[in-house]
Nucleic acid binder design. Structure first.
Length: 594
RNA sequence: GCGCCCGUAGCUCAACCGGAUAGAGCAUCCGCCUUCUAAGCGGACGGUUGCAGGUUCGAGUCCUGCCGGGCGCGCCA
């Protein structure tokens, strides 16, 4: 079973092949001119260039062969050499029946599934997530779901940032503020307290709010004061050496952070298979450093141990990978490299996708090159999927009115508040129990946030305008939910009336368009998969919703005569299935009613 | 300075391997609820794709230069 586009593409490919031309030329795309055709084939134009023939002649020969295809009612040459294809109502009806009978609503499963890791979210210990984490979470979650839906074995890893210099800064800052805790840290060190024992009660005083308050201050002090910085580095080294005092205090940092992070991720409908942190690969670092040295990759430079990754022909001077700092600490890139090694040993991924801010492109290039040099990964197995920043209405990175960084939790709360307002304005869900109304508002908020983000291509920055995206009209998440809920309501009513679904028979233009929209699901998924671009799926979900909405307006369903009603009910339920699958890939779930 | 990304309708964004008349949404204007949820549907208005060259039968897309914006360039992550 395959979509019409692909099936017709094979037929057209065979036609090209029979003329002694490459079959790839038969690629079929949706028509740019829906007034003229359903699909088109452009291959005659490049073929003509290659073969130095008249494109219209080649097109005519291909079209002639396609005319025998039972699915087509016409295959005509137009313009400089386009082949326009019109599909018969019967072929559309058959395709619609296939989609309706398919729990995957026409989406295929990969012939050669891969093992994939998606590294996204990028939360850090001691720092609440802010708007900057929104895109990484939303895009990463969608990429993970997309790859999984297509048939790959996928693990999503939060890759907790929990092991760097920032930890040393915080340990120092906490000790400064609480002399008694400083004393406790010293005592634990002296007693060689067990690392995996209970976290001392005294540490429970430290909350995420404390860490959030102290971190910026400590970071600033570290920048200004070399002595402060050196102490933080020393404490970082102590933590990495697993001195009990620093380590147990750090475990408290991790603990308080994770609770808050899980709450935020849960509110966004984001969940991870792995909560690996940088600290988890710490044990691999000494061996890895030795291995790099053995392989002759590690060299000393300005007191640090580095791996040079520059290549001849590089357009720019790529910095080396800093493996061990002059202080003897592991760096950001060190843990990244060790993580690649860890994943190779534990999971053996064919592909690792890093969903991280575009600004880190150079960093990943360096790490990936080092990994390939060391034999921890092969060329092309590591992919950095960068994304642009989310800007405020002024076109600059999003800030609160006060100029601070907006916390993710506050952003979600704000959006929920707007969702409630909008529901009330529209008079929706008024008679529902409070809990259900709240659940709906939460889903509307998540849909608004995610769809606004995912309908843009990930690579470009976009403007996050609260007023705009909470305006639930037009091309928005809530519109999609609304369409899904409308279908659900319709199907419930049909069931109550005892109206049965039956075989699809396409007749009306709105029905044709709806089936053509349904048929495009697979190609949207495939494009999104190949380009790491969920916006193709978002676009599809919107087009499908729109096609349904037109169908809904043009074609009465429950009042139609039984056979027509049966056919339209099948179309409606197939639409719902596909829409919910598409939304699920985007990480959006639909309520039963609203 | 070097490198990467971006510049498309008044605003926010699309455009699959270079294809026909560059598409959506918002905003503005005009229609449509005694019929399945009007957060909807139909229609109108809106473009020299930053500028100038080049390649091509054909360029928003590829190449060169310029203008404008964002970002990155060794011990933070």
């Amino acid at each position: 079973m395959s979509d019409l586009k692909k099936a017709l593409g094979e037929a057209a490919g065979a036609a090209f092949a029979s003329l002694g031309l490459p079959a790839e030329l038969g690629r079929v795309t949706a028509s740019d001119r829906p007034d003229l055709a359903d699909f088109q084939v452009n291959g005659a134009l490049p073929a003509a260039k290659q073969a130095k023939k008249n494109p219209r002649e080649i097109a005519a020969a291909v079209a002639e062969r396609l005319k025998g295809d039972g699915r087509l009612i016409s295959a005509e040459v137009a313009g400089p050499g386009f082949i326009n294809l019109k599909v018969s109502d019967q072929a559309l009806s058959e395709r619609a029946r296939e989609i309706a009978a398919d729990p995957r609503a026409g989406a295929e499963v990969l012939a050669a599934p891969r093992r994939v890791i998606v590294d996204y979210g990028g939360p850090n210990v001691a720092k609440p997530m802010h708007v900057g984490h929104l895109r990484a979470s939303i895009i990463g979650e969608s990429v993970k779901r997309l790859y999984r839906f297509r048939g790959d074995t996928v693990l999503g890893d939060a890759h907790f940032g929990d092991w760097g210099y920032q930890m040393g800064l915080l340990i120092g800052a906490v000790c400064d503020e609480h002399p008694d805790l400083a004393a406790l840290v010293a005592r634990l060190n002296a007693e060689a307290a067990p690392l995996d024992g209970p976290i001392p009660e005294a540490f429970e005083r430290i909350t995420l709010a404390d860490l959030d308050r102290l971190y910026p201050l400590a970071a600033a002090s570290g920048k200004e004061d070399p002595a402060y910085r050196d102490r933080a580095r020393r404490l970082t080294a102590e933590l990495q050496a697993k001195r009990p005092g620093a380590y147990l205090l750090w475990r408290r940092f991790r603990e308080v952070t994770q609770v808050a992070l899980e709450r935020d991720f849960h509110a966004l409908g984001v969940d991870f298979d792995l909560w690996k942190g940088e600290s988890d690969v710490d044990r691999l670092i000494p061996g890895m450093v030795e291995d790099l040295r053995d392989k002759g990759l590690l060299v000393e430079d300005q007191g640090a141990q580095i791996v040079r990754v520059a290549r001849q022909g590089d357009k720019r001077d790529l910095p080396p990978l800093l493996v061990v700092s002059s202080e003897g600490s592991a760096m950001y890139g060190t843990t990244d490299l060790a993580t690649i090694l860890d994943r190779k040993q534990s999971f053996g991924p064919d592909l690792a996708i890093y969903v991280v801010d575009q600004r880190q492109a150079d960093h990943f290039e360096v790490v990936f090159r080092a990994a390939c040099l060391a034999g921890y990964a092969e060329e092309g197995q590591l992919q950095h999927i960068g994304f642009g920043t989310m800007n405020g209405p002024d076109g600059k990175p999003f800030k609160t009115r006060e100029g601070g960084v907006l916390k993710l939790n506050d952003l979600i709360e704000m959006t929920r508040g707007k969702a409630r307002e909008r529901l009330h304005e529209a008079g929706l869900g008024e008679d529902l129990p409070v809990e259900e109304f709240e659940a709906i508002a939460a889903k509307v908020a998540v849909a608004a946030l995610k769809f606004a983000d995912l309908s843009n291509f990930r690579g470009t920055s976009y403007v996050f305008d609260l007023d705009r995206f909470t305006s639930f009209e037009g091309k928005t998440g809530p519109y999609l939910l609304y369409q899904a809920v409308r279908v659900k309501s319709l199907l419930r009513k049909a069931e109550a009336d005892g109206a049965l679904a039956g075989p699809v028979v396409v007749a009306e233009p709105a029905e044709r368009d709806l089936v053509l929209a349904l048929d495009a699901f697979e190609s949207a998924l495939s494009e999104a998969y190949d380009r790491f671009a969920p916006n193709a799926v978002a676009e599809h979900a919107y087009r499908l919703s729109q096609a349904f909405s037109k169908f809904y307006a043009a074609c009465p369903i429950l009042q139609a005569e039984p056979q027509v009603r049966a056919a339209r009910l099948t179309l409606a339920s197939a639409t719902l299935t596909q829409l919910e699958l598409a939304l699920d890939v985007l990480g959006v779930s639909t309520p039963e009613r609203m």
